[in-house]
Amino acid sequence: MARSVIVTGGFGILGEAVARAFLDAGDKVARIDFAPEAKCALSDALDLGGVDLTDAASTGAALDRIAAAHGGIDVLVNVAGGFTWETLEDGSIDAWARMHAMNLLTAATITQLALPALKASAAGRIVNIGAGAAVKAGMGMGAYAASKSGVHRLTEALAEELAGTRVTVNAVLPSIIDTPTNRADMPDADFSTWVQPAAIADVIGFLSSSAARALTGALIPVTRGG
């Protein structure tokens, strides 16, 4: 039976790869994004642009549309987020609030609002995007790593909270993802060592499957290139 899948940040490179993988598996997919519209349309995907995932009213309205169109919610993949590199001395304190909102509050807001539907699913799945860089933060990574560390703690706490339900909660922790933006920012890097978006989508697909039914609260590094 086709599941109802939501991918936040679905208009970006990773979100698109995740959405494609679920569509290829025969699932019903909705992409939610802050951007007004996707640069690349996906056949059969329900696209909802211009959604502020830190705003409960906007997020709730999007969830209601998806549940009505797809008959509930079975899988929530929280890809939405952002990145900044700046030292504390030369950077802006505003960056810390911005990273907190983009990476942590977006995931917490939509997850809280989607919980009733996910708990009603025969096998609810929540998969968050953490970061390998949040395990040990390097110079200039403080604001980003702090917000992604919050995603890790959200994953662990929510998994324990939902232990008596049919919902599992896990996170993938990618290293550098091979995207056009990262290539432009680091043109001298060895791209072959970077993680492919499709490979991350494969791990997310496994965590969302019945084969991963006994796995919850896990923070899974995804670091291999090629």
Rank of each mutant, 00 (worst) to 15 (best):
D94G: 15
T87H: 13
K119S: 06
S147M: 07
A143Q: 10
A114M: 02
V127E: 02
L113I: 12
V151Y: 01
A133N: 10
A122T: 09
A120S: 15
G150C: 11
A120P: 06
A97T: 13
T87Y: 08
G132P: 07
A137D: 06
Q112K: 15
S92A: 15
K136M: 08
M141V: 04
T109I: 04
V151C: 08
A123T: 06
S92M: 10
I126S: 00
W85R: 15
G130R: 06
T111C: 13
K119D: 01
A145F: 09
A143N: 10
E86R: 02
A133S: 14
V135W: 00
A143C: 09
G150I: 08
A97E: 14
A117E: 01
A133W: 00
G138Q: 07
V135L: 14
T106K: 04
G150Y: 09
A143P: 04
W96R: 09
A95F: 05
A107I: 01
S121K: 03
S147T: 08
P116R: 00
N128Q: 09
G130N: 09
M139Y: 12
A108S: 13
N128K: 01
G124Y: 01
G142S: 15
G140P: 06
G150N: 11
E89Q: 14
H100E: 12
A133L: 12
L88R: 04
M99K: 05
A108M: 13
I126R: 03
R125L: 11
G130I: 04
A123S: 15
V127C: 01
H100L: 12
A101P: 06
G140W: 01
V127G: 00
A114L: 03
A120K: 08
T106F: 01
I129P: 00
K148G: 13
V135E: 12
T111S: 15
A120F: 02
S149P: 12
S147Y: 10
S121R: 02
A122L: 07
A117K: 02
Y144I: 08
P116F: 00
S149H: 14
M141C: 08
W85Q: 12
R98I: 05
L104K: 04
A117G: 04
A120R: 10
D90K: 07
V151H: 00
V151W: 03
P116D: 07
N103R: 01
A95S: 15
M102W: 07
I126E: 04
S147Q: 09
G132T: 11
G124L: 01
N103E: 07
G140D: 05
K136D: 05
I93K: 12
S149E: 14
A146G: 11
K136Q: 11
L113K: 07
A131H: 01
T87R: 15
A133V: 13
G150K: 15
G91L: 11
A97H: 14
S149D: 14
M139A: 13
T109G: 11
N103P: 10
R98E: 13
A145Q: 08
V127D: 02
A133Q: 14
T109K: 10
A122Y: 00
R98S: 12
A122H: 06
